[in-house]
């Protein structure tokens, strides 16, 4: 239970960090941004400590040894929280926009809240023995690679949201204070593209790794199960975004709407698919 308590502490710190991200949006004192960083860093430390304890409990089952514990919904959501927060820290640290917290951290918060709720409703952190199909070294690679790409897409979604708000502000006759706090449209548009350009290859590589794993397990690279199909749809939508931006020169709102469609597919692939198919889902662990 200690790992659940530690995770709940991490979730509380993520919540506080998200609130500070919003405060920074309205009251641009650098101290809010700094404290947001500190809280997130401590939250990540708590989260890692929780994950360490959970890993020890997971490895207590001999078949699970040396595999990452993401074969349950709790584990997947927890890893997703860590991935979104981690990529946010990297993106924010690199681009120093400050304002991004209010647009990206709600996703990390949602994932953290979902994880905490799942832990509460299941009465623990869902430690299961790995099904035979999951006892492969690919278990430590394929889902994590995909999750990193999802997390970066989540960051891009936040940037896209900021762009839409900024564009709306600039179009209005009386722009609010927020307009002067948000970066320029061009900067946001470029960052949205850069993030998707980084995440898209990672997603496709993750999908290919899944295909190679499926070939090792069942002798088929592609089986058209719902998860595979929706990950392909996600890749196709982002491919449309990249083509329209790079070849047709789409910028601004149209490009952002396309990328948002892609992120809707990401969410459906991660969460929704579990409800339409038993295979390849965190809820069935098959």
């Amino acid at each position: 239970m200690m790992e659940l308590v530690l995770f709940q502490a991490a979730a509380a710190l993520y919540t506080a960090g998200t609130v500070l991200g919003f405060i920074y949006l309205w009251n641009r004192g650098e101290r809010w941004s700094r404290w947001m960083y500190y809280l997130l860093a401590v939250g990540v430390a708590f989260h890692l400590a929780s994950s360490g304890l959970r890993l020890a409990a997971f490895w207590a089952i001999p078949e699970n040894r040396f595999f990452v514990p993401i074969n349950s919904f709790f584990g997947a959501l927890s890893a997703m929280t860590l991935a979104i927060t981690g990529t946010f820290i990297v993106v924010e640290g690199r681009h120093r926009l400050g304002i991004l917290g209010a647009f990206v951290l709600p996703w990390a918060w949602l994932a953290a809240a979902g994880t905490a709720f799942r832990g509460y409703s299941m009465g623990g952190t869902e430690i299961h023995g790995l099904a035979p199909a999951l006892q492969s070294y690919w278990m430590n690679i394929h889902p994590l690679v995909i999750m990193v790409s999802y997390a970066i897409f989540g960051n891009a979604f936040g940037v896209g949201l900021a762009l839409l708000i900024q564009e709306r502000q600039l179009r209005s006759k009386r722009p609010q204070e927020l307009c002067y706090r948000l970066p320029s449209i061009e900067e946001l548009d470029n960052l949205n593209y850069r993030l998707i350009a980084v995440a898209f290859p990672i997603l496709t590589v993750g999908i290919i790794m899944g295909g190679i794993w499926a070939h090792e397990a069942w002798g088929r690279f592609w089986g058209w199960d719902a998860k595979e199909t929706w990950s392909l749809i996600t890749a196709l939508i982002y491919a449309v975004f990249l083509h329209m931006r790079l070849v047709a020169g789409w910028r601004g709102r149209k490009a952002v709407y396309t990328s948002m469609c892609g992120f809707a597919c990401v969410l459906f692939t991660f969460i929704g698919v579990n409800f339409i198919s038993q295979l390849h889902g965190y809820l069935s662990a098959r």
Partner: peptide, 17 residues
Amino acid sequence: NVGLICVLAFACGVGSF
């Protein structure tokens, strides 16, 4: 080509439901 990708994505979506 983008239209073709969209049609493919739509067909995949139909096949998944």
